[in-house]
Design a protein around this nucleic acid. Sequence first.
DNA 1: GAAAATACGTCAGTCTTGTTGACATTCCAA
DNA 2: TTGGAATGTCAACAAGACTGACGTATTTTC
Lengths: 169, 169
Amino acid sequence: MAEGQSQNTSSGQALLYLTDEQLRQGIEAMFFAYRGFTADPDRILEGLSYGRAHHRAIHFIHCAPGTTVNNLLAILGVTKQSLNRVLRTLIEDGLVTSHVGRSDKRERHLTLTEAGEALEQQLSDAQRARMRDAYRKAGPEAVAGFKTVLEAMMDDDMKRAYLALREGR
Amino acid sequence: MAEGQSQNTSSGQALLYLTDEQLRQGIEAMFFAYRGFTADPDRILEGLSYGRAHHRAIHFIHCAPGTTVNNLLAILGVTKQSLNRVLRTLIEDGLVTSHVGRSDKRERHLTLTEAGEALEQQLSDAQRARMRDAYRKAGPEAVAGFKTVLEAMMDDDMKRAYLALREGR
DNA sequence: GAAAATACGTCAGTCTTGTTGACATTCCAA
DNA sequence: TTGGAATGTCAACAAGACTGACGTATTTTC
């Protein structure tokens, strides 16, 4: 309570960008932008009997081929049962293959098939096209700021996962 | 297909921030950041038998008191059946009131009760606290860039709704 | 004044995606 | 070798989105 007022009184003009009104605008911008962010892949998936969960699985399997179910679980932040349902349909439909681990036979290593890679391309082309337009309109400095703020918004665990993905490439 | 390569070859160094790899990083940053963005309110709502849908309704009723059901529908981008389920529970629980319109008696005007405002405060305090931390860490220039990119990511309809909300305050 | 359009609510059914609980298999360490 | 921990699978359920159909009150249009 009343923490909203404090930035105005404590530090003068320099912190005007931290007013409640500015923060509220940022919150709403996140809400509306995220809708745009997912709109294109959602449109493609609709009618294929796949959803956003399938998209996420495909995206991260593409980025880290041979990853295990457990690994994917940590990145996606859902229960293994939830992920399993998605993976089962993807495997049944021949988009993902699951291989028993060589050293640890409990693990299943996940890879996209050719068909899986093709769908991944289609989905990420659409999503990247929107991002590219946004980036181009906004310019490089804005993009740098965009990433800085997003990273600061993540939970520490998420930031670790995010940075680990960047390292791995 | 192959649109990913084009920025590298066509325009040299100036457009390096538009590479597929940069775009992919941005996509993942959006994904992880949005999780952080919703984490705090989700935690508060959990156990109250409310979900993210209730949060969204409360947020926008707070911002536009007296708004109509139809209006809210357009902003939230869901069906009236879906919104109705949420509104019914909020009204039953005494967080929202619904008044028949004065000039047009078909309309219902929605307002938060005192209890509703209290919950809204609690939720948005948590969310703003995270945004404030992120903004403070990132600094004013980064925040400006952040908003620029988010606005560029929105669909045109969404951008109109977003800007209309800013005007109304 | 009658007919069409609008605003809202509701019932019924489906789909995606999250949850918990129970269980099989495999590995490892006491 | 045996019991616990880790990995993954199956089954059942709940939240929240969707469509479609229908009912009611009110406004607008002809």
